[in-house]
Design a protein around this nucleic acid. Sequence first.
DNA 1: TTTTACAGTATCCTTTTGGGTACTACGTAC
DNA 2: GTACGTAGTACCCAAAAGGATACTGTAAAA
Lengths: 134, 134
Amino acid sequence: MSLPRAKLVKNFPGCPVEATLTYLDGKWKGVILFHLMEGTLRFNELRRKLPAVTQRMLTKQLRELEECGLVSRTVYPVVPPRVEYAMTPLGMTLKPVIQALAAWGDDYVFCSPEGRELRLASDGLRAPVAALEA
Amino acid sequence: MSLPRAKLVKNFPGCPVEATLTYLDGKWKGVILFHLMEGTLRFNELRRKLPAVTQRMLTKQLRELEECGLVSRTVYPVVPPRVEYAMTPLGMTLKPVIQALAAWGDDYVFCSPEGRELRLASDGLRAPVAALEA
DNA sequence: TTTTACAGTATCCTTTTGGGTACTACGTAC
DNA sequence: GTACGTAGTACCCAAAAGGATACTGTAAAA
């Protein structure tokens, strides 16, 4: 083990937080990992869980996750094609991270009535922030 | 509390993980939050901790963090100017998230000898992955 | 016989993000 | 009287990310 640990790097990415975010970065990676944490999914199954993603983007994000070893891709040579995506053991180590992200999102991120805009619980001190003081 | 929770949103961002990542997204937000978790910092103090950031980018990222209520900005009307950045109570609720991200980065992200490329512990099953099996 | 499902590619285009450089004002130190 | 440190803006440009649309091939179903 001769490589320096990320925490020893002083320049880029600057800190282990950035190092991790590097791998979660990409518009759909978070959701993909979130769903795959609960079990193997085929390409179109995943697509149905992400109504807004295009085929191109889903493929792209999956390939990136595969390339860095977080997700595995298994092709069954049948017709019609069957391709299964699953978390690798390394990917599974992300579980606490994904859980922390999900928990915070659940507690503090709201969706505006219009639907497409996010807001944090802070404006007006809603329940989660109040819960802080309890 | 009439707004629907993020977890109820079926379209965008699709899941609470993405919702949280929305706020951490930006090349320098992770490091900034990481450093501010440990205490208030002035603009140039922060800049010194992030050797590679430009003034423009640091300002931009800080403004975004301020706008969503995670970080506060206090201007002291003195010359030369003194501006302090600190986590808000809401920002502090991110601590477990930042810690989870940092822990995973520490354990699984390595830096290649050349310096600018990241790698995950998976290739060759180094210590952290081995630790999984123990 | 046409359509559907599957798992993608290829091509092009727009938007967003990030970076480089120069500039500001003010007071103090040299 | 020139330079330095503070905390920024303004302007422009390059690169990366993301999205729209059309296309592929095979087998089974309608």
